[in-house]
Simulated assay, not measured.
Amino acid sequence: MTDDIITAATTATTSNERFAQAPGDPYRYGVYLRPDPVTCAAVTAVTAQLRAQYGLVSAGAFPPHATLVGSRHLPGPEEEIVEAVTRAVADVPAFTVHNAGIRRQGVGLVYDVHHLADGTTPNTALVALAARIDTAIAPLETPAPNPAAHPFDADTFRAHLSLLSHDMYVRPDPDLFAEVEEYATALPVPFSDSFPGNTVALYRTRSDDWTGRWWQTLTWEHVRSWRLPR
């Protein structure tokens, strides 16, 4: 019993020392576009089903969202982050977001919300909003020694709502992916073909290990929302 206590204390000390390498650890911030309630419910239903059936949890570890800027190390006062996002969204009007349904993206599955109704033209209003927010918070960001970088690049940015994501990096079985894709697309879950892009939200996230399977210990808190005018 004594050995277990010593081991636990040593582990906690090591973790604290590692996170002390950068001010603000182990927290990160994300600025998200919140979908309409119907789509949020759809994301929740699909991710809950994938967790219940296959134990896949990374996409469902977050609230339903389309990332504008994600997992940024912003160690300064939270009020400065709020002020920066407030400036970025000032006078930005709401716009329509189109949902093309479940698509493959990277190692996972997403609701594709990057394009206009034609399915091929990028939604420039959505990309421009992400770029504005990135520009606003960039001066507040400092490097952290442990997480991967998440730079914004308008050319590679792809707006999406995650349904299946980082779990598949550690379970890279093509047969499993094919089964999960078939399962997810067959779920009788309704979603909106389009919804107003009018709600931006700031979240604070925390994980015990941003270098590894962070989704297994991820927690988050809603900080602030902004409603874009019509």
Score class of each variant (00 low, 15 high):
Ile133Ser: 02
His150Ser: 14
Gly212Cys: 07
Ile102Tyr: 01
Gln105Cys: 06
Arg51Gln: 11
Gly55Cys: 06
Tyr111Ala: 05
Ala12His: 11
Asn16Asp: 13
His160Cys: 07
Val46Gln: 03
Thr13Ala: 15
Arg171Pro: 00
Ala45Arg: 00
Val127Tyr: 05
Gly24Tyr: 03
Met168Thr: 01
Pro26Cys: 12
Val57Arg: 06
Asp193Pro: 12
Met1Thr: 11
Leu228Asn: 06
Ser162Met: 04
Pro122Phe: 05
Arg34Ala: 09
Thr142Gly: 06
Asn123Phe: 05
Ser192Trp: 05
Ala138Phe: 08
Ala94Ser: 15
Val69Asp: 11
Asp4Ser: 13
His73Asn: 05
Asp91Ala: 14
Pro122Ser: 13
Glu179Trp: 12
Ala45Trp: 05
Asn123Leu: 07
Pro172Thr: 00
Ala59Thr: 03
His65Thr: 05
Asp4Trp: 09
Val189Leu: 10
His166Asp: 02
Asp153Phe: 13
Phe19Trp: 06
His160Pro: 01
Val113Met: 03
Val113Phe: 03
His150Tyr: 15
Ala94Cys: 13
Thr14Asp: 11
Trp226Glu: 02
Arg230Phe: 10
Thr2Phe: 14
Pro147Asn: 06
Pro196Cys: 08
Pro229Asp: 14
Thr47Met: 03
Asp36Ile: 08
Pro75Phe: 06
Ala184Gly: 05
Leu176Ala: 01
Ala84Pro: 12
Ile133Tyr: 02
Asp175Val: 04
Ala84Asn: 04
Thr14Asn: 12
Glu181Pro: 03
Arg227Thr: 13
